[in-house]
Each structure stands twice: as structure tokens, then as C-alpha cells.
Design a protein around this nucleic acid. Structure first.
Length: 695
DNA sequence: TCTCCATGAGTTTTT
DNA sequence: CTCATGGAGA
């Protein structure tokens, strides 16, 4: 067990902990994954049957990577470890046992995503004859998720609750489950069917949970049941990095765990990622949170390093300009683009940076658009496939019956749905009986014929790789995209090709008949939020929200738009609970940085079409980062029209001494000393200061 | 049924 | 500002 020697004292203590419930408080960059995977490897090498170990993570990526690391440490024997996300685990349980719940589900149910949920909810509202404008569908979806999480079942009869009940029965009638159900139903199974509960409680000798601060109530209940008998529960997490409470995560679960399991606690606070001035700023900041189930101070052996750098810009443009310049400078110093990240509180804030990066020719990539499987064309393709597998799937039929356009509008669709209800048939079968305009009828029959052909072609198919070609040929989807002449038609076509790649990969990955493979592949897709993007090896700066870089690290991190009202956001200002969560978000951001941390803010920026004036975020003061305002105030006040003229000598904070060789409108061209050379810089840019010659 | 415009909404989102 | 959506008119 060579790997044990690479652990530090606390990590080792956790790994060889003799047993019983253990809470490992793993601060940012303290070797959390290493400890968890070493623990699993240790258990296996000590003789534990890997198939009796259940380890749960929150992302598929984490699950996959952890499994690989365990296999690397112990050999292929470890493949049988149950290493899943909570949701994937729940799905497994449901595929086996869902029929035992009294809701009429069959094992071949389908998992729907958020957009499907919204669609169903708004359909219910319309069906009830209510005015859609009176409700926020998005709000209802969150509310329903909350209902499920809190397991509310005695309803008063508010309109919302009626919609919820209809939503729930629609799912059940249609053999659909949502993401919440993937956790809730397994819990219900365990709670109501003692035989099944006892089986799994006894079966899993060890239960391990990663990112424990992100568990919600249902997940905690599941954990409590699964760990109850053997009490070999090993959880790893950092309550200071809990940033998903809006999705139900409850970092107080850490306290519940210590209490309910009478667990021991080991703290990992030796950081291996960042230099210490960065860590000190992060430590300072998080101290302002009063509610910390596991307080700690991070420290590393990487020296003090550079102090976090604070930049005060006059407006959003100048802020982005500062960041772009700094990125180029760091790049020249040898930091690769993909070791730099620009982080912001919400997605709208990315735009200014994108524009500037395009102008400055800085390669970048934005994560956080619509995820691959949520794209229209992908969802359409999957709907065709699901419908071809089972013509009874009305929900998917509704999605694609008019794709591409077949003269079937809302009215015809409604008639079809009604007819299906009256005759107690699937909508697919009701096509033969419905009375609609001749064009619509023809469209429906063409559609039906096409689906039958696809279905029959599936019967003869052997590899998943063939699916997309057939689908595109039959549906003429690509042709219709081209005809529409959408500017993003090419992107859509490319996405469909990517989906084909996903399927052909599935051919090698899954076993069984074509249909068996396909069903596994579809399950996988339901649970995956994005494509395995390991192809992306181009060197780009990452633009992202804080939430999306949790767990990642970069040599240089730019935390931009550090403005009161944005970060922390307006909505958080009234509640200390929310402010603390925002502070944790900032803490997560700071602890991503290995060597360079920049925080910036602008006095004014364009947001939602109007000018917004902001004060610096309280998080700047709280982390005690030295501000440059004192040196700069003078310069800012004197920044009027044409501060600079040709021949002026300037001092730039980063590029040092230079001479102005040209001024065009507001851009000055300045020759700096070696190695920086000639740069174009906004003449009023706060990082430039005019100096007297030979100063 | 489709297309075009007015209207309103606009955190964060592992699954 | 930008995007999605729903209603009115062709």
C-alpha cells in the first residue's frame, strides 16, 4: 500500500481510521479526493469485498474519476465498487423496485429534466383553465421540488397545490419521474418495504459520501438508513463550501451527522494548492460567517506568494480591459490560458469580458450556457428515439409531432390529446380517429408512418452508432434546419453529430442487445448534465460562474464585478443566512487560485440596459485585501479629457515606464520598456499614471 | 397554421 | 440590453 506514504498525518488518520462513523472536514485544496479514494482502496486491500462498498458523489465526472483512481490503486478488482451519484444510485434502485410502490410505475419509466418539468407544469395550468400569467412556472417547479423534499402530503387547496397534484399524477400516468423522484422514491421504498430496506442496509458494509455539504434532506435520510446497521459511514465535506442551499443542500447535515451517528471528526486544513497570502485572505473572509459547523484555517507550505490584487475600475469596460491586459501579461510570463479563470456571480456578467477578449484576441471558453442535453435539437432527437421505443410516450410525441413542421398546430394537437383521453388510447393510436383539418391529419399520419418505420428499423439494428443516421434520414431534420436558415443551424447540426459520437461510444461501453444498450445509454443521458468534454484541449481562459468551478483550480483567478448588490446580490442583503451563503461563494472563488488572485470592481456598469452605480463588495474589506484606491484617488479625479499627449512619459502599474507615441480618441499607444513593447491602452485607464521625465 | 411584434422578466443549477 | 413567450393578424 504505497499510496499510504503519500498521505499527511491527518489524511492517513482518516484513511486507516478503524471504523465507525467519521466526518472528514476537508478544506479547499486539502486532498479531499485523495483521502476518499485512498480510503476506498485501503478498505479493498484490507480484504473488503468492493461490491459491498457504496461511495456517493454529486457529479458523474467525480464518480468516474474516483472510480478510475481507486482502480489505479488496487487493480481492476475494484470495478465492482458502487461508485455513483446519488441520483444514479437512486435510478438503479428504482429500476429494480419501483413497481413495489403503489403508484403504478413500471420498471421502464423515463426520467425527465427541468425543461420537461416546466413544460408539464404549464400544460397543467392551461388544462385547468387558469391564466399562465398568474404563475411563475419556474417558481412552481422550485416549489414542487420543495414539496417533495419536505415530503408534504397533506395539502390545503391552494391553486399551486392543485397544480402540484395534477403534475404528480401526470408523471405517474405517463411513466415519468423527475430528478427529485429519483431520491424520494428510493427513500419511500426503504421506509415502507422493510424487506428491501434490510437487504440494502445489510448489503453495504461501508458507505462513503463525497461533498457532504451539498447533501439535501432526502439524501441525508437515505444515508441514515443505509448506514444504520453497519455504522461504517465515512463522509467528506467542507461546510464552508456549501453553495447550493438554493437547491436544497443543507450544510447543517454535518451537525446532524455528528449527532445522529455520534461521529468522530478529523479536520484536513493543510492546503496543497495556494500560496499563503491568498489563503489568509480567504480565511479572513470566511471568519465573518458566524454559522460554521466546522471552522478551520487553511495553511500551505507554498510560501506567502503574491498578495491578492485589488483593482478599482471606473466602468465595466475598463474593468474588462484591465483583466484582458493582465491576462495577456501573465500569458507572456508563461502562464497558459487554461490556467486562468475569470469568475463572476451570474452569467449575464460575462458579456463585457467576452467582447473585450474577442477584441484582444484572448482565447476563452464559457461554461454555463445551455447544457448539451438541454439543447433543442438534442432533446428532439432523443424524443424521437424514446417514442420509437414506446409509442405510448405521449409526452415525447407532443414534442416532436410537428418537427419538422407538418402543419400540425396547437389546435390539432389539443384535439388529438382530447381524442386520446376519450378513447383511452395513446395519442399515437388516436391519430387514426381524430378529426382535424386534412392537412393536419395528413401530417399526423405521415408522422405515424415515419415513426413506425423508425421503430421497425430499430428492430434490425445492432449498433447504437446507426441510430442517428437513420433518424436524420427519416425525419429530414438536418434539411429542415438548413431551410430555416437559422444562424445557429450549423451549431445544431454539429451537436447532432456529437450525439452520434455519444451513441457510438455507448456501443463499446454497454452490453446486451441493441435495445438493452439503448436503454442504458438513455438512462446515462438523463443523468448527465454535459458531454465528456475531454476533447477540449485548446488552451483557453475560462469564463465561468463561481458555482461551476467548484473543485477546480487555476494559477490565476480573476474575481470580477465584486460589487455590492451583485456580489453579494440584492436578494441576499436582507438575510444573514443568504449573506453567509454568498460569502461562501466568494470563499470558493478565492480558494480556486494557486498563485495569483485578482479582485476587481467598477463604479458603474451597464446592466439590463441601464447604468448601475455600485460600491465595492463588502467581501473586499472583509478579506482585508489592500486596495489601491489610496494611491489612485488623485489620478482618478484628474482624469478628464485627453490626459495624455504624444511625448508624455507614463508609469503603468504592470508594464512600468513608457512613452506615449500616439493618442487616438481615447486610446493611447504607448511604448513601454522591454519586454512589454508597444501597447494600446485606454488613456484614462486607471493603471496608467502620467509622470515627469526622469522621475 | 404560421409569422411577426409587443411585452415582460432577468441569481447561482452537481442531478 | 437580450431572450422567450403569447397574442394578433395574414
Amino acid at each position: 500500500m504505497n499510496f499510504l506514504t503519500s498521505l499527511n498525518e491527518s489524511q492517513l488518520k482518516a484513511v486507516i481510521h478503524p471504523g465507525g462513523p467519521l466526518f472528514v472536514v476537508a478544506g479547499a485544496g486539502t486532498g479531499k479526493t485523495k483521502t476518499l479514494t485512498s480510503k476506498i482502496a485501503y478498505l479493498i486491500l484490507e480484504g473488503m469485498d468492493p461490491s459491498k462498498i457504496l461511495a456517493v458523489t454529486f457529479t458523474n465526472k467525480a464518480a468516474r474519476e474516483m472510480k478510475q483512481r481507486v482502480i489505479d490503486m488496487t487493480g481492476p478488482y475494484a470495478t465492482s465498487v458502487w461508485l455513483y451519484t446519488f441520483h444514479a444510485f437512486g435510478l438503479q434502485i428504482l429500476r429494480k423496485h419501483i413497481a413495489e410502490l403503489p403508484y403504478g410505475y413500471r420498471p421502464n419509466f423515463t426520467v425527465i429534466d427541468d425543461d420537461d418539468q416546466k413544460k408539464i407544469i404549464s400544460d397543467q395550468i392551461k388544462d385547468m383553465g387558469l391564466d399562465l400569467k398568474m404563475f411563475s412556472v419556474k417558481g412552481l417547479r422550485n416549489l414542487f421540488s420543495l414539496y417533495k423534499m419536505k415530503r408534504i402530503d397533506d395539502f390545503e387547496k391552494t391553486e399551486e397545490e392543485k397544480i402540484f397534484l395534477r403534475y404528480q399524477s401526470y408523471l405517474r400516468e405517463s411513466q415519468l419521474v423527475d430528478f427529485d423522484d429519483l431520491l424520494l422514491y428510493p427513500l419511500e421504498i426503504f421506509e415502507t418495504i422493510p424487506k428491501i430496506k434490510t437487504y440494502y442496509q445489510n448489503y453495504f458494509q461501508h458507505v462513503l459520501v463525497d461533498e457532504f455539504q451539498d447533501t439535501d434532506h432526502i439524501q441525508y435520510c437515505l444515508l441514515k438508513i443505509l448506514g444504520e446497521v453497519h455504522r461504517q459511514v465515512f463522509i467528506v465535506g467542507d461546510p464552508d463550501q456549501s453553495i447550493y442551499s438554493f437547491r436544497g443542500a443543507n450544510y447543517e447535515n454535518a451537525r446532524f451527522f455528528e449527532r445522529d451517528f455520534n461521529a468522530e471528526k478529523i479536520i484536513l486544513d493543510q492546503n496543497y494548492r495556494s500560496t499563503n497570502l491568498i489563503l489568509q485572505a480567504a480565511n479572513q473572509l470566511i471568519q465573518f460567517n458566524l454559522n460554521r459547523p466546522a471552522a478551520k484555517n487553511l495553511e500551505s507550505d507554498k510560501g506567502l506568494g503574491d498578495a491578492p490584487y485589488y483593482h478599482h475600475a471606473m466602468n465595466d469596460f475598463q474593468e474588462s480591459f484591465f483583466v484582458a491586459n493582465e491576462i495577456q501579461r501573465l500569458h507572456q510570463l508563461g502562464i497558459p490560458y487554461d490556467e486562468m479563470a475569470v469568475l463572476y456571480r451570474n452569467n449575464v456578467l460575462s458579456r463585457m469580458f467576452e467582447d473585450t477578449f474577442i477584441k484582444s484576441e484572448i482565447p476563452y471558453i464559457i461554461y454555463g450556457g445551455i447544457s448539451f442535453y438541454a439543447r433543442r435539437e438534442i432533446k428532439d432527437a432523443l424524443a424521437f428515439i424514446r417514442l420509437a421505443l414506446d409509442f405510448n410516450q405521449d409526452f415525447y410525441l407532443k414534442r416532436v409531432i410537428n418537427v419538422p413542421k407538418r402543419q400540425i398546430g396547437q389546435v390539432s394537437l389539443q384535439k388529438l390529446e382530447q381524442k386520446a383521453k376519450d378513447l383511452n388510447l395513446s395519442m399515437f393510436k388516436a391519430i387514426d380517429y381524430v378529426e382535424v383539418t386534412p392537412q393536419a391529419k395528413k401530417g399526423m399520419q405521415d408522422f405515424k408512418q415515419m415513426m413506425i418505420e423508425i421503430h421497425e428499423a430499430f428492430l434490425d439494428m445492432e449498433s447504437l452508432d446507426e441510430i442517428m443516421a437513420l433518424l436524420m434520414a427519416k425525419t429530414k431534420y438536418i434539411e429542415s434546419l438548413r431551410e430555416e436558415g437559422d444562424d445557429i443551424a450549423d451549431d445544431r447540426i454539429e451537436n447532432l453529430m456529437d450525439l452520434k459520437t455519444v451513441f457510438s461510444r455507448g456501443d463499446h461501453y454497454y452490453e446486451g442487445t441493441f435495445t438493452e444498450k439503448l436503454i442504458q445509454q438513455l438512462d446515462q443521458i438523463s443523468l448527465y448534465s454535459d458531454l465528456d468534454q475531454d476533447v477540449e484541449d485548446i488552451n483557453r481562459v475560462r469564463l465561468s460562474t463561481y458555482h461551476q468551478v467548484k473543485g477546480l483550480e487555476f494559477q490565476a483567478v480573476f474575481m470580477v464585478v465584486m460589487e455590492e448588490g451583485i456580489f453579494p446580490g440584492d436578494r441576499a442583503l436582507g438575510s444573514s443566512f443568504e449573506i453567509e451563503e454568498e460569502r461562501r461563494v466568494a470563499y470558493v472563488g478565492m480558494t480556486r487560485a494557486k498563485q495569483k488572485l485578482y479582485l476587481s470592481y467598477a463604479d458603474q456598469r451597464m446592466l439590463y440596459g441601464s447604468m448601475r452605480h455600485s460600491l465595492p463588495s463588502r467581501f473586499l474589506k472583509e478579506s482585508r485585501i489592500k486596495t489601491e484606491d489610496n494611491n489612485d484617488r488623485e489620478q482618478i479625479n484628474t482624469s478628464s479629457k485627453h490626459m495624455l499627449q504624444t511625448g508624455d512619459h507614463v508609469l503603468h502599474q504592470i508594464f512600468g515606464k513608457g512613452v506615449v507615441i500616439r493618442v487616438d480618441s481615447d486610446i493611447a499607444t504607448i511604448a513601454f520598456d522591454f519586454p512589454h513593447g508597444i501597447k494600446k491602452i485606454l488613456e484614462s485607464h486607471p493603471s496608467i499614471r502620467k509622470v515627469k521625465k526622469e522621475n
